[in-house]
Write a protein that binds this DNA or RNA. Sequence first.
DNA 1: GTGAAAGCGCTAACAG
DNA 2: CTGTTAGCGCTTTCAC
Lengths: 339, 339
Amino acid sequence: MGASIKDVARRAGVSVTSVSRVLNGEKYVSQELLDKVNRAIEELNYTPSHIARSLKMQKTNTIGIIVPDLTSQFCSTILSSIEETASAQGYNLLVGNIAESMEKELRYLRVFQNMRVDGIIVMHQKFNQDILEFFEHASMPILFSSVKGPSSSYLSVLIDDYQAAFDATEHLISSGHEKIAFIGGDLADITSGFSRYNGYAEAMKKHGIEPDPRFVKFGDYKLPSGRRLMKEMLGEDEWPTVVFAASDDMAVGALNCALDHGLKVPEDMSIMGFDGSLITEVVRPAMTSMQQPVEELGKKSVEYMHHMIVNPEFTFDSDIILQHRLVERESCRPRLAHA
Amino acid sequence: MGASIKDVARRAGVSVTSVSRVLNGEKYVSQELLDKVNRAIEELNYTPSHIARSLKMQKTNTIGIIVPDLTSQFCSTILSSIEETASAQGYNLLVGNIAESMEKELRYLRVFQNMRVDGIIVMHQKFNQDILEFFEHASMPILFSSVKGPSSSYLSVLIDDYQAAFDATEHLISSGHEKIAFIGGDLADITSGFSRYNGYAEAMKKHGIEPDPRFVKFGDYKLPSGRRLMKEMLGEDEWPTVVFAASDDMAVGALNCALDHGLKVPEDMSIMGFDGSLITEVVRPAMTSMQQPVEELGKKSVEYMHHMIVNPEFTFDSDIILQHRLVERESCRPRLAHA
DNA sequence: GTGAAAGCGCTAACAG
DNA sequence: CTGTTAGCGCTTTCAC
């Protein structure tokens, strides 16, 4: 349909080589040739085919990205940040939203492979055998962003989730709380499920506090599960003084539930979230949260990915750990020692 | 680097044609040949090159999509819905987040053109001359989703924004409000700026109510602008009884501001949003909003896009208008006639 | 400075 | 049923 480099060459009365040369801004071309070619390009409304070029160069300038759930604010924010640096580095983004389905994840991985993307960024953390095998055999670099990869042979860019949850819990303890509830994710998720729970549990242990099993529950990171789990807790005859959730969405769900039950937050109960997504600033009371450096997460992910693409020999001996930061807002309040 | 179809052919001791045939699941292949080829594929860990195939077929099975702002919940939800149907139809998504920059939009459009995507879905509504020219000369179908395209030669899938805003305003009026404030978007945006404002204005006019200029303001659809504009209003010596915002984010910003000023919503003032994104269910009080059928918007957009791709002759004589729906929650309350 | 020609990995006549 | 071959649109030696 559209004009090809051949058409341009013919029209300009030069060889395709020359056209290619001006297309790629090479030096040794005469002004005259340059003008002729540019005129022909203009007249034919020609645009070079990235496809043909990719085939020849064995390079697509495209990064595939596996997103667990586009509707999650945390994911879309990080995606936005990834897009920003990727675009600045000249990469295009092929996105696969897998809606928590490993089948779909595998399908997208295969598509990315077929598409010969230059690299794959994975934001998902639950793998099955097929997926692991794919990673194993993949012919392009794979990097895990905001989650831990399945082994140390893959580079991960993320925070120390264990430490972050530990710090958060310890903060709560040091401000006088003891009855600290925990709403976690799936323990099969190393990063946001297991590590965060573990951080909570170890901090409790360190301070000699036995977590009350009635107040340790697990959801799916999404808002409704926070609401549901909070409701269960409020059904008990005793309540925690603070609820620490492993995602902001669950924390907000818990908050909504508490509010709808007529509780005052933080007067009657404190709530703390995890991730630091936008929603924490939007709800009232604004949500205290253990914040991930989303911008940096996206930026570093793409930078390292680029590095791995350009330099296939690149080896690393540790993950890239970014700093977490507790952002205190209104949903948490110290518990008075004598209360 | 990886094996090519030639390698497979050699290994299996057959011709490349035969390999191509089993790859594409054609009928007339003997069981024996099929087995040989499959074994070779397995052994070489071969995956077909989508690139080469695209070049040959002049079809990429890829749709490019221009997103105004990934961090907006409305956008990412619609993107998610688009992804879902696209993936079901066998299309992959190349996403360009343009962060409200027309320059970046143009860059992405050109990239999409070079990449020879099969079609482009645009969710942005502000165009300059270069962009319009691009649309004009583009060699692939272009469809506008949730916004109105620049002319009737492009297909748009969207709600009737004018009517929706009109209905919303009339609903407010019929429940006793007269001092109805309006927080709009940029009037240069036909769809969500101008049309919604116009719907508001016409409904007021129809009922003989003169909008108070102090209570008609324009922001950028984002939360902070709603907050800021609400603050300005609260600085006046008289207040509206209800604020109607042209986006949920601005409505929530207004809500936050009102709450932070000690107002009770909806007792002291009602607030209504537009879009019906998730956030409306999350804030307290939950936000009444004029809802767009997001799922359907995404689904229909891809379906029509597919149709246009498959059938280049496809013509249409009108846009695809989907139904809006007012979802009443707690942030709005009728105004008593005698108050 | 410029051009001819080979080839990236695949599909599709066409021939057998 | 199976194989030969000519491109798809580009880059890149290697000559001139």
